[in-house]
Design a protein around this nucleic acid. Structure first.
Lengths: 190, 190, 190, 190
DNA sequence: AATGAATGAGGCTTCATTCAT
DNA sequence: GATGAATGAAGCCTCATTCAT
């Protein structure tokens, strides 16, 4: 509850983001974070009550925001979600959802084993699957396959998020991915 | 030295497979394995010299076999690989490569962080990407995207492996995935 | 309390002797002993209640016998000790004391850390030192030095015991050592 | 990273020295060290990365220094080794080599089983034996005996090291030992 | 506000020993 | 008489976390 130096706070967050992203939550040590920041471990705990809260600060609000916007899309109230921009299509929607938060997205998707966020990937996949099943008649023996393709969609998004260096690249590759996905998906609905 | 009672040995292997599969290698403790099997931790070590060897027994031979057959496919000597069956196309090849070893495949792909197998996923992806780049002219700005799509292909295989209960399902879904993939990939080569 | 096969019993003893001699008591494992004997560890325990008792069987009687004869020598009742042979001098006495039991002697001297025999070396040294001090006037500032030389004497005996392959060699080298010792010791009593 | 409170660090070193000295490296547990120091085991590891490093800190630099000076003596470049003092004879040389490091010497000689230093004793003995054989004609049947006497020499040094409380005592006893040794050794060369 | 000191819990592994068949 | 199965205690080490200054 004391006045903390914002620079340090930010540096801790930045370093944690980098390390969680590279090594995962479990694979990253408080000692390592403190070491790279250049402070003592005990000082780290002055800024963040514990390791999980660090993760919360990094991805918590994005997590909430993402799920909210995501649900909105799925329930067709999506005209104005994701940062106030009207989303016209899948590619654009996903681009908006990740823009500026690629590392958070990757952490949530692939690097949160052992935390309360570990179900994120499954959640977003399942939601979209259910949505699709509501909208479309899915042949029972294809149900699993729909899950696979949705998983693939998010896997692709995550991979793109990993290397994207700017919005333009992100946007164009996500669009490509959406096309790839949509063209491919027709396999299931001949 | 001595051959142990198969029931327990098998139970350990089955339990480890289940837990590694669910929580990953690192996320699974010897205590937990022993606990679920219903034996003491020290007894576990009578059956398997250490934790990594448990993983070896589970995926080691599959790992070797997979990489061998995989290289054969990539170098076009693939007429008779993967269990002696002639493979006519991508779907069939991947089906043959996973048949009967779905859980092993999943563990190698997604659950081997912190072991000598941790590079498996990257290896199979990179190999295929290089292969594609040799065979096809890939526009530089699409290179990353090829990686994404290959990653997607293997992600799909892994997801299918997760729920497949019999060869027929596995075969048909892998084939579907291959079609989905090939149809979708045309996006990159308009 | 069942009838045990003498061959196995002997083989266990022989193997333990060899291993304790080579690696020390602590450095030798019951598994290793059983393995080299070719029986199960649990069977080993049918023959010997525990690891320390194994050591007892190997060196216990020699230990008692040694100390008895040794005390006899020190108290000048040594005319007929050590295997019924009259000992005329130091070299002969020590030869008699070790003859046929070199490995036991070495184990007692150097390889019994962590057992009730670990004080053996210190005991024999101290006894002889006290004896000398009773027999001779030792200048106070030389007292420690007497201990050193006695320790040296036993160290030499142990080293000779390590490589001696027959009684003749043992006898001659122990005699040499005694001469070396006696000639050298005069340094203290000029 | 950080410099620790010297008191505790020193207390750990002192306690380890004492315990290694008394019970050997293997016979001493981290629990025991921490217990005697009055800290938790985990705290011990804040000061020393692992058990072997504790030993290194205790004897490492002495070990290097000793072997260097020792080789110098053996190759007759020994006029000015061991702390810059010209050594005129064996006794003086050994005194210089041990001065101020008696406990380290003892640990290296007798208490380092199971560590990288375990060959020290054999090394110094073998070196000197080889040196003697180069300088002198040793009758084949006496070769073993030379080894025994050299072993005895170092055993004596170690024993003296064990109780020596000051340089004067150390010096005079080492000198006495050298005389004892040289006078005794003439037995082999009559 | 910052840090060195400290720790309990838990992770992997080995060992001597017991038990049921 | 022999053995595979089983175990508790202990060993080394790391980690997230707390406390006193």
């Amino acid at each position: 509850m004391q006045v903390q130096k914002p620079e340090i706070r930010e540096k801790i967050l930045a370093t944690s983001l980098k390390l969680f992203y590279k090594q995962g939550y479990r694979g990253t040590t408080t000692r390592q974070i403190a070491g790279e920041v250049g402070i003592s471990v005990s000082n780290l705990y002055k800024y963040f009550r514990n390791k999980e809260i660090l993760l919360d600060e990094l991805v918590g609000s994005f997590h909430t925001w993402y799920l909210t916007g995501y649900q909105a899309i799925l329930s067709h109230e999506n005209k104005d979600t994701f940062d106030g921009v009207a989303v016209e299509n899948l590619g654009q929607a996903f681009f908006e959802s990740m823009k500026g938060h690629c590392r958070e997205f990757v952490i949530l998707m692939h690097k949160s084993q052992g935390t309360k966020y570990q179900g994120f990937k499954q959640t977003v996949i399942s939601s979209l699957v259910k949505h699709i099943e509501k909208e479309t008649v899915v042949h029972p023996e294809n149900k699993r396959m729909v899950e696979v393709l949705v998983s693939n969609l998010f896997n692709g998004l995550t991979e793109i998020a990993k290397y994207s260096r700017n919005d333009k690249q992100l946007s164009s590759h996500v669009t490509l991915l959406a096309h790839y996905h949509l063209r491919g998906i027709s396999v299931l609905f001949p």
